[in-house]
C-alpha cells in the first residue's frame, strides 16, 4: 500500500507540474499575442493534451484517498462492518472499470500511433497522451484491487470536512 501511495503521489505531482506548465505557457502565449504579436499558435491544443494526461495522472491519488464520491444516505444506519463490505465491492468494480480503461486505451493508443494521429495545428502526436493515461489507469486499477482485497488501510471515504480542514491549515 505504501508503494502504491507513493506512486500515486508521484503521478499527482507530475500532473500538477504539467498543469503548471500549461499555465505558464498560456500566460506567455497571451502576453506575446497582446504585445509583440508573437504567440504560440497551437497553445490551446497543447493545453488540451496536457490536461488529458494530467487528469488521468490524478486518478490514482483520488482513489487511494477514497475521493470518488459515494452516496451514503441509504446505508448510514447500517453497521460499519456491512458498509465496509459494500465499499470493498465498490473498489472491486472500480478495479474492473480502470482495468477495462487501461486495456482499451492501450488499443486506442496503438491505433493513433499507427495512424500518425496528430493535433490539427501543432501536429502534436496523440499517442503521447495515451502513454501517460495507460499507466495511470493501470495503477488506479491496482489500487482498487488492493483495496477490495486488503481493505482501505484505515483510510476513511474522502471526507469533505476533513479535506477542507486540512486545506485551510
Amino acid at each position: 500500500m505504501r508503494v502504491l501511495e507513493s506512486l500515486a503521489k508521484l503521478c499527482a505531482i507530475l500532473a500538477g507540474v504539467l498543469l503548471t506548465g500549461i499555465t505558464l505557457m498560456t500566460c506567455a502565449s497571451l502576453i506575446g499575442r497582446n504585445t509583440t504579436g508573437h504567440s504560440i499558435v497551437g497553445a490551446f491544443e497543447l493545453t488540451g493534451v496536457a490536461a488529458g494526461a494530467a487528469i488521468a495522472l490524478f486518478m490514482p491519488l483520488c482513489q487511494i484517498r477514497r475521493g470518488n464520491i459515494i452516496v451514503d444516505f441509504f446505508t448510514a444506519s447500517l453497521p460499519e462492518r456491512v458498509n465496509d463490505k459494500f465499499d470493498r465491492i465498490g473498489a472491486l468494480l472500480l478495479f474492473v472499470v480502470f482495468a477495462l480503461l487501461a486495456w482499451r486505451s492501450t488499443l486506442g493508443g496503438i491505433n493513433v500511433w499507427q495512424s500518425n494521429s496528430e493535433t490539427q495545428i501543432m501536429g502534436f502526436p496523440e499517442w503521447v497522451v495515451y502513454a501517460f493515461m495507460v499507466p495511470a489507469f493501470a495503477l488506479s486499477a491496482l489500487i482498487g484491487l488492493w483495496q477490495a482485497v486488503f481493505g482501505f488501510g484505515g483510510t476513511k471515504p474522502e471526507d469533505p470536512v476533513a479535506a477542507a480542514q486540512e486545506a485551510v491549515q
Binding site: 499575442r33 504579436g37 499558435v41 490551446f44 490539427q120 495545428i121
Partner: peptide, 22 residues
Amino acid sequence: KVRGPTRQITKMLGFLGATPVG
C-alpha cells in the same frame, strides 16, 4: 489577430503578416 481553421491556413496567415490565433 485572425483565427485560422486548418494547419495550412494558419501557416498562411502567418506568412501574410497576421497573428494567427488557434
